[in-house]
């Protein structure tokens, strides 16, 4: 095992099997000629790029293709009939590394069903790590591939439940795209 290392290190001691010393010796055999040759090679390599197609996207007109795992805006999915999916278990708030970024207030109605009174996410402090989406027991809080989140004030970045919640159809669409069971009742 270690013999292999030693042989290989000898062979790969530097670029294309040459040591630094070799490179100097070779390139100084006739410094002027070789130097000019190398500079010309570099110039031609750069010149070759002149006719390549640009790879930049002109952003507002051309949107980048985002993967379905992209960490964009956080959102709350609903059940298929449009009612709240969130059960107010506070799991997302507890694993969030950014202090009280997610705030949930809930009570239980007469049937012991959870009712979410308040659900706010402060996107101004969110680091889009994805911890909350991972621990959610009902797959409710999820990322949308939406990255255009800038706004004019810090207050506008605090999203409440109304801003966050997707309606039933959108939620079904999301679940379909991400391979989850579509109908959630």
């Amino acid at each position: 095992m270690m013999m292999m290392v030693s042989e290989q290190t000898q062979a790969s001691a530097s670029l294309a099997g040459k040591t630094t010393t070799d490179v100097i010796k070779q390139s100084t055999n006739s410094l002027v000629v070789d130097g000019l040759k190398e500079i010309t090679r570099g110039l031609l390599t750069v010149l070759k790029q002149h006719n390549t197609d640009p790879i930049t996207l002109e952003y507002p007109e051309v949107m980048p293709e985002l993967s379905d795992r992209f960490h964009g805006r956080l959102s709350l999915l609903s059940k298929s009939d449009g009612t709240d999916l969130c059960i107010g278990c506070q799991a997302c708030a507890r694993v969030c590394p950014c202090d009280d970024l997610i705030q949930i207030e809930m009570h239980r109605d007469a049937d012991k069903k959870p009712v979410i009174d308040r659900f706010t996410i402060d996107l101004g402090r969110c680091i889009f790590c994805g911890n909350c989406t991972e621990v959610c027991p009902v797959d409710c809080i999820k990322f949308l591939p939406d990255f255009e989140l800038a706004d004019y004030s810090r207050e506008a970045l605090v999203l409440d439940k109304k801003d966050l919640t997707l309606n039933g159809e959108e939620s079904d669409q999301w679940r379909k795209e991400h391979g989850l069971a579509v109908t959630v009742a």
């Binding site: 270690m2 290392v5 030693s6 290190t9 000898q10 010393t21």
Partner: peptide, 10 residues
Amino acid sequence: SASTPEVAVP
């Protein structure tokens, strides 16, 4: 200068 590389032997 120009010494051979030393190889770790675990």
